[in-house]
Amino acid sequence: MTSTPPPPAVPDPTPVDPAQVADPQAHADRAASFERDADVYAQVRPSYPREAVEWMLPARPRRVLDLAAGTGKLTEVAAEVAGPGAELVAVDLSPAMLQELSARLPGVTTHRGTAEDVPLADASVDAVLVGQAWHWFDATAAAAEIARVLRPGGALGVAWNDRDADVEWVARFGEILHRGDRLEPAAGNDPLAGLGAAFTAVEAHTVRWTDRVPAGALRVLAGTRSYLLTLPDDERAARLAEVDALVATHPALARRTEIELPYVTHAYRATRR
Rank of each mutant, 00 (worst) to 15 (best):
T210N: 10
V220C: 03
G154H: 09
A86P: 03
A254Y: 08
R272A: 11
S47H: 09
D164E: 12
V21T: 13
I176R: 09
T224A: 05
A267Y: 11
V40R: 15
G113W: 05
L183G: 00
H27K: 15
T206F: 11
Q43Y: 10
Q132W: 07
V220T: 15
R208S: 13
L88Y: 00
A222Y: 06
Q25E: 14
D233M: 08
A165G: 01
E76K: 13
G194T: 05
A127H: 01
P232A: 02
R239C: 06
R272D: 07
A198W: 02
R148D: 10
P46V: 03
A52S: 14
Y48Q: 10
H250M: 01
A144C: 05
A141T: 09
A123R: 15
A254V: 12
V108W: 00
M1I: 13
F199A: 03
V149G: 03
A133Y: 05
T271Q: 13
P5V: 03
A59S: 13
H178Y: 14
V247H: 04
G216W: 09
P152L: 06
A32C: 06
V247F: 04
G153M: 06
D162R: 09
V170N: 02
P11T: 08
L65G: 00
A187F: 08
P214H: 05
G216I: 08
A123C: 11
P106F: 12
A245F: 03
E203K: 07
R62V: 01
H250K: 04
W55Y: 13
A31W: 05
T224E: 10
S47T: 14
T257W: 04
L67T: 04
P24M: 07
V81Y: 14
L65S: 00
E87R: 01
R219C: 01
R112S: 12
D244V: 00
H27P: 14
T257R: 15
A204V: 04
V53Y: 12
D233K: 11
V64K: 00
A241F: 07
P84M: 03
P8S: 07
S102M: 11
Q43A: 15
G131L: 07
P15I: 01
A147F: 09
R236K: 09
P214R: 08
I259E: 06
R62W: 04
V128D: 06
A147E: 08
R273Q: 14
A198G: 00
Y263H: 13
P191V: 04
L105H: 09
A127V: 02
Y268T: 01
G153K: 11
G180N: 05
Y227Q: 04
P106W: 11
G85D: 14
P119C: 01
S102E: 15
Q25G: 10
S226A: 12
G72D: 10
A237Y: 05
P185S: 02
Y263G: 00
A193D: 13
S47K: 02
W169C: 01
R60D: 15
V77Q: 09
T71S: 12
G113T: 01
P214E: 12
I176L: 08
D164I: 06
